[in-house]
Simulated assay, not measured.
Amino acid sequence: MLTLQTQTFFPLILNPSKTLIPKFKTLNYSQSPGQIPIPTSNSGLRFHDKLLYLKTLNVNPQKALQQNPNFRSTPLESLKLVENCLLSMGIERGAFGRIFDMHPQLLSCDPYFDLYPVFGFLLNEVKIPFVDIRKAVVRCPRLLVCDVDEKLRPTLRFLRNLGFVRMNAVSCQTTLLLVSSVEVTIMPKLDYLMSLGFEYDEVARMVVRSPALLTYSVANNLMPKIEYFLSVMNGDLGELKRFPQFFSFSLEGKIKRRHRLLAERGLTMPLSEMLKISDGEFNNRLIEMKLRLLSRR
């Protein structure tokens, strides 16, 4: 049940307006920017209570202060507003430690200007059901520190043009894509795949079927796997169009090992079958295929 404090913000989610000021307007209560209040017995006690409160959230106070000096002058009541905001969206207290550890600037943010616009965007524009908001944020806490107008909305528009619509729409499982830069992160993957000979529409279908493709490093993931697939496995690019999930499997831990076992026995297997099945089932398939091969001789 929402508290009175969080209820005052909830209309923004139901009818989100444009962000009124730049992201992360710090609630600075010191007399001048960067100034730390002169310690007194009362202020020292309040500061001590604030550090203890951080520990109840499983947040390292020393790290929090080091990475977000503004938190020193932020009242405890302000942090409780942030907590109430997250709780009102279904995010359990047990997840706060990880969220604040990854993004300590949240400790001194203003929920009205910084958090509720993001939640309103996820609910009303991305169309993520309320019950899945928790999953989206826990999976990708960076959502909470991204500007809706400058980052999230333009990326959503690009993804929808790419094909993330209807049954393939962005979900709580793929909101990680929303925090990606179109120019710096997404386009290099598309350009690399097209450089192999795929058409843009083919690449679009591949990434919609396997969204993780847009999160992999070209140099550390895509290129080594493509090189092995083409030069060692003598693979057909058409098979990658049918099974783009190939790039999600470990090159050393699974692709090379299983291909080597097949090659040593003179056997072949469709790419999807070779990688999707468990080790036990793969070994059983090897035995069955070898026995069939021997029976034909």
Rank of each mutant, 00 (worst) to 15 (best):
F10A: 12
K80I: 15
K189H: 12
K50V: 01
L86R: 04
V165W: 00
Q173D: 07
T268M: 14
A204I: 04
P154R: 07
E150V: 14
P117E: 08
H48N: 03
Y200W: 07
I99R: 10
P111G: 02
M187R: 14
T185E: 07
G90E: 08
I226S: 00
L177S: 07
R93N: 11
M269Y: 04
G238N: 13
L12W: 10
P117K: 07
F198R: 05
I21E: 10
V179M: 04
P22G: 14
G253L: 13
D49V: 08
K63V: 04
Y200H: 14
P61S: 14
Q62I: 10
K18F: 14
F130L: 11
V232M: 15
G44T: 04
A95H: 15
P16R: 01
N84Y: 10
G90N: 05
T6N: 08
M89G: 06
K189P: 03
N221V: 13
F158Q: 10
M1D: 14
S272C: 13
E199P: 05
P129R: 01
L271W: 04
V182C: 12
N221D: 11
T26A: 02
Y116I: 06
K135V: 03
C140D: 07
I186N: 04
P224I: 15
E288F: 09
V232C: 13
Y216C: 15
F47C: 06
L45R: 07
D114P: 04
M289P: 11
T185R: 06
G120H: 09
C146D: 12
E288A: 14
V131H: 05
R134F: 01
A136Q: 03
D110Q: 09
L12M: 15
F24P: 00
S180M: 12
D149I: 02
Q105S: 07
S32V: 11
L143H: 02
L14V: 12
V182H: 03
K127I: 06
V126H: 00
A219G: 06
Q173G: 05
T268C: 13
I13P: 00
L122G: 04
A169P: 03
F249A: 08
C172V: 00
S88W: 09
L178R: 03
P16M: 09
Q245A: 06
T8M: 15
D279F: 13
E264L: 15
N221M: 11
V165H: 00
G97H: 00
T215H: 07
R160E: 02
L177R: 10
F229S: 04
F198A: 07
E252C: 09
L196V: 11
P224R: 13
L54A: 08
L152N: 00
I91G: 09
D110P: 01
R258H: 02
V82R: 02
L107N: 02
S32A: 15
N60F: 06
K25M: 12
Y112I: 07
L86G: 02
T185N: 14
K225V: 00
T174W: 00
R160I: 01
I277S: 06
E227M: 12
P11R: 01
S250V: 03
F130C: 08
E227S: 15
L251G: 07
R72H: 12
L294R: 10
I255G: 00
I277K: 12
G266Q: 01
I287P: 03
D149T: 09
G34A: 09
K23P: 08
